[in-house]
Design a protein around this nucleic acid. Sequence first.
DNA 1: GGGGATCCACTGTTGGATCCAG
DNA 2: CTGGATCCAACAGTGGATCCCC
Lengths: 216, 216
Amino acid sequence: VHVHVARARKRQPTADEVWARARALAGLPLSRLPGFGVARGKGAVGDMVERALGIERSASSPDVPTVEVKTLPLVGLRAAESTWVCRATPSSLQSETWSTSRVRRKLARVLFVPIDRVALRVGTAFLWSPTEDEERMLRADWEDLADLVARGLGFAVSARRGRALQLRPKAPHAGVTRAARELDGTPYRTAPQAFYLRRTFVQRVVEAALADPARW
Amino acid sequence: VHVHVARARKRQPTADEVWARARALAGLPLSRLPGFGVARGKGAVGDMVERALGIERSASSPDVPTVEVKTLPLVGLRAAESTWVCRATPSSLQSETWSTSRVRRKLARVLFVPIDRVALRVGTAFLWSPTEDEERMLRADWEDLADLVARGLGFAVSARRGRALQLRPKAPHAGVTRAARELDGTPYRTAPQAFYLRRTFVQRVVEAALADPARW
DNA sequence: GGGGATCCACTGTTGGATCCAG
DNA sequence: CTGGATCCAACAGTGGATCCCC
């Protein structure tokens, strides 16, 4: 008899274990990360770091219950890129408030793993949670952007909007669209978008971390 | 510049073209179908026949606007199997009536391509639409089964129910479940099910076709 | 015999992000 | 410099059905 057994997923490590492992990666050349030479594409470093931390990727589950792991590409002390947060779909945003939002949950505790893009090494990981000031900015941007997306106006929003958060396309290519429904049920198609932390916002986070060595 | 160009899909053939090609396949050994030795699994013959008819498979589109192509495995003059019709999901059935149902649309015009499982050859294709009698049976079964599924009671329905249509599991394995919602919005998980034409019903169709050579 | 379980290919979606023209 | 476009892997979902104990 064939009996299906769900593939045994390794237990996800605890937040403390992830923290300890991330700190142990400091200084490691990227070439020594597990999967180097195998992982490809723009997310290759992110995938390798997650593997090094013992995190099994699986659709629709947070990295670790209470910690979101993000690589943070640096060129010198400059944050090189904006940071992807999560998808911005009309349907989910129609039923979210800031307090219940995925953006807020994901950003509540982030373990940033700096990546030195010049030396090609992993940097010293640090934990970040939004300060009161930062949370106010994020909330204001989210409430503005989420409202527009929820009302089916996402297509009209440019990445220029928002000080901390921005809305940008997120798809394999510009031809992709997804089915969505107006609040009144009318169906339409829209290009997938996502919330990103602006590069300048990430830069502030880097500088605050450097200024507070107690955190690293 | 990279510009995305949707992969040029070949124009789907018209119903007449499909009919002509299907008739031309009569007598062909399965080993001569395109993709023989490449296509594998339980749907291999179905896939090869569709290729031979020039039908490009793509998710979420009917085979040909107004014709549904189905292989019909025969052992002698005996229909060997039941025939899959379409998924039976609570959410879609909550908003369907018999007139608007996918079951009715799919079965409105079916091009059956018999497959001789003894001689391993393609048989003579024939078109089928439900007679008034058959449609009454299908409708009665559908209204009974769809109502149960829509109300979240699909799990309690066995394949014994229904004279023409039956409800059976449809999944890679018995461990698969899908998210669904009660009529009142309460979420639950349920094993995927699908509508099938009973083998005995398919047998009637075969016999009727044999008795009416005008149709082939 | 047939009800319940299962098999394969292909595409769509998601999570990881970085690329690059203007 | 950065807004808009894109890259890859892995997994889930769909459409094509048949398999195989009881």
